[in-house]
Design a protein around this nucleic acid. Structure first.
Lengths: 241, 241
DNA sequence: AAGTGGTCTAGACCACCAA
DNA sequence: TGGTGGTCTAGACCACTTA
């Protein structure tokens, strides 16, 4: 059995053991964990204690549980987690998110800027890959995205032949980097000439700027993503508390 | 004992009974609920079932639990719930929210517009009260807020002598309206001349517009609040999933 | 010392799924 | 039919607060 700090509640110890095992890839995404009973026997705790740990994992979307079937490692390609980090919706729509299409991405390798190094906790001058794309909503260019990722975490990512609509599924399936949390900062900016080219919007128009730092299950800062959204047809929707 | 639908898990039935009692004011904010043991005895279920219901209430911030003391109805004046709905922070600050000051509010009674009636689920032409204020951050006017509330829910609210910095504590303590959820929609707009007057920002500058519908514990739509934020010094910060 | 919530256990029964 | 998670119970012990 893995070493466990013994000054925490049992269920938290179990929780951390399971997080570590998932992070280490002992069970791959979409793979079933052992049953509560089996885990309880292995870890020498009661089934109820394992359940409390698994419920906590489920609450953080690290696993998905199905009655009668089992507990599975969460996968980024599933419908419900596909839109977990995509919060754009039509005004007034209750919970329904829009379905974005994506144009082809452009990829380029370069040195990180000072700001990027700080935000991603990289050493100065580390190599990053910059991925740019434009998302269409109802066929209209609406969001331009720039993703910056450390090359070290995603070797040769700039030589992937096709980037999927959701990068996070690629991070997870090819590189074993599991995004579980995103810190977002929103502000309002004015469109530039570059925005006019990407989105067909006049310079000086208002854009919603979203800067996101995506954190992996290991706590690594895996991606810095800056989105610029034309909010004439869509809004950023969120329920608080 | 209250009537309970009997086709749900026991702990959910207990949960709904407790929500109803809190909503009806059987226990006032900051007042202690009976102990788990007492509730279990009264409702004829086990202590573990009551615990599960209370844990759910705590997860939704409807109650606060203290080991060794008891379970208390959540209060909007407490530090941690004061900023629950205020998500503005300095860029890069981890979780630290800024402390806003507030200018004096202006209050006026009028008929609801069509859009307001729709969003607040009011009948056409219902009377509302419009409350306007400007919030300062570091002494600088940064956010202008317009709150629209149905007069029916808050009788004579326009004749309150002083409106507190946090309206939600007033709603709760004076009118028994407990705000537990806010639906927010964010977009980018351009500053107008009115914004220049309120915030001292040049017309044509970008502003972050936040439209919030605040829902009470009873599911009533209690407030429509529109904020316009100058995001040159602060951002809207949020962690997703 | 008494009372509260927090943890942990053990076992029962149920609802659901798959072979 | 057997295995899974979901619910419910009863009781033990612990940690913390208050008096």
């Amino acid at each position: 059995m893995d070493p466990i700090p013994d000054f925490q509640p049992l269920y938290k110890q179990v929780y951390h053991v399971l997080v570590r095992r998932i992070a280490e890839g002992q069970w791959r995404p979409a793979e079933a964990l052992p049953s509560e009973h089996a885990l309880a026997a292995e870890l020498r705790v009661s089934q109820g204690t394992v359940r409390k740990a698994l419920d906590a994992l489920a609450a953080e979307n690290l696993v998905v549980r199905y009655q009668g079937k089992g507990t599975y490692v969460a996968e980024h390609t599933q419908e419900h987690s596909l839109f977990r980090f995509f919060r754009l919706a039509r005004p007034g729509a209750e919970g329904e998110h829009v379905i974005p299409e994506s144009t082809e991405a452009s990829c380029k390798r370069r040195a990180a800027t000072a700001a990027e190094s700080t935000k991603l906790h990289l050493s100065r001058g580390a190599t990053v890959v910059e991925i740019k794309r434009v998302r269409l909503i109802d066929g209209v260019p609406t969001v331009s995205e720039k993703s910056v990722v450390p090359l070290q975490l995603f070797p040769e990512i700039d030589h992937q032949d096709a980037l999927p609509n959701t990068l996070y599924s690629l991070y997870q399936s090819v590189y074993g980097v599991n995004i579980v949390l995103a810190k977002e900062e929103l502000s309002a900016v004015l469109a530039t000439k570059a925005d006019e080219k990407d989105l067909g919007i006049k310079p000086g128009s208002p854009l919603l700027r979203i800067e996101r730092i995506a954190m992996s299950i290991n706590g690594e800062r895996a991606e810095l993503r800056t989105s610029r959204c034309d909010t004439r047809n869509i809004v950023y929707a969120i329920d608080v508390s």
